[in-house]
């Protein structure tokens, strides 16, 4: 791996070298390294691009890293990764995609990740998207995350688009059975003329299922964002969606939430706020000696932490 590869890996997976435990690094459609562990097996799909990750029941304190890096211009791929998480397992999965496009044609990665969580399994899934490159070619990423949580399972999704992604349509579909819980932390930052769409569907199908979405976004320059968060309650359940966006310059943000109750015991809440940085926040930090620009950066850094 060269310097560009390592920088991309650092940005998306905080990796300085080959990770510990099970991993699969995909570079320009080829495998750039893979390791399975005693309890986590990674195998290539035979019918389409992608991998299957099998985590044995009861696996604890292990991690799987599956970063994707693209450094070729005019390269487009769709990858399918499926995760089969055994009952009672408790693991960390770090994914993400980094594109370095030095050319003038579009480079695009569409990743479809499907999770099947067994009973009482716990997964923390971290996904970061980042783009860079001196070329005029667009950097496009369309991640799709689908998860089916069996009884008592828990999944925490931390999904972040850092910067440099020109166009993205992010789709998320989560289905929770009895007592299952999902927490989604979404962070989205767009700048220049970038466009981002996030469609999120959470179905709370079982009794005592719960879902929480905390979405924070910043749109700068002439970028645009559209959010479609949706929670459906089909049983006695609790769902909470909280969307906060900071709008700056000539950007546009649209949030179109849906809360749908299909059961009398379903409690669903949605909160959404779009606004500029409050003048008093800037003033406060300026009284601490920061310039207006420095204050703005600090507020955005904190908001997107």
């Amino acid at each position: 791996m060269n310097e560009v590869d390592l920088k991309l890996l650092m940005e998306i997976a905080k990796l300085e070298s080959v990770p510990q435990g099970a991993y699969n690094i995909r570079k320009n459609g080829e495998s750039a390294g893979r390791a399975s562990s005693d309890t986590i097996e990674i195998v290539s799909k035979t019918d389409k691009p992608g991998i299957d990750i099998h985590v044995k029941a009861g696996t604890k304190n292990e991690s799987v890293h599956i970063p994707v890096i693209l450094t070729e211009t005019a390269y487009t791929e769709t990858v399918y990764n499926d995760f089969f998480i055994g009952d009672d397992a408790d693991i960390l999965i770090v994914a993400g995609c980094g594109i370095h496009n030095g050319g003038c044609n579009t480079t695009q990665h569409d990743g479809v990740h499907t999770f099947y969580l067994g009973k009482n399994a716990r997964v923390k899934y971290v996904e970061r998207h980042y783009g860079e490159g001196e070329g005029e070619g667009k950097r496009v990423m369309n991640p799709e995350t689908v998860a089916y949580l069996d009884e008592g399972a828990y999944m925490e999704l931390e999904t972040t688009q850092i910067k440099g992604v020109d166009d993205t349509v992010r789709k998320t579909y989560i289905e929770c059975k009895k007592g299952a819980e999902v927490v989604i932390n979404e962070k989205l930052f767009t700048h220049d003329e970038q466009h981002a769409e996030s469609k999120m569907d959470i179905v709370l199908a079982g009794e005592d299922a719960s879902g929480r979405v905390i979405s924070r976004s910043v749109a700068r320059d002439k970028s645009s964002q559209i959010f479609f968060p949706s929670v459906t309650g089909r049983a006695s359940c609790f769902g909470h969606v909280q969307c906060d966006s900071i709008i700056m310059d000539g950007a546009t943000i649209k949030s179109i939430p849906t809360v749908a109750a299909e059961h009398p015991e379903a409690t669903l809440v949605h909160e959404a706020a779009i606004g500029k940085i409050a003048g008093e926040q800037l003033q406060k930090l300026m009284t601490l000696g920061l310039t207006r620009e420095e204050a703005e950066e600090k507020i955005l850094d904190g908001f997107m932490r």
Partner: peptide, 14 residues
């Protein structure tokens, strides 16, 4: 003012 995301430690550091 209140700040979403800025911690007490961050403010005292600044």
């Amino acid at each position: 003012p209140r700040f979403k995301g800025l911690r007490v430690r961050d403010l005292l550091e600044l």
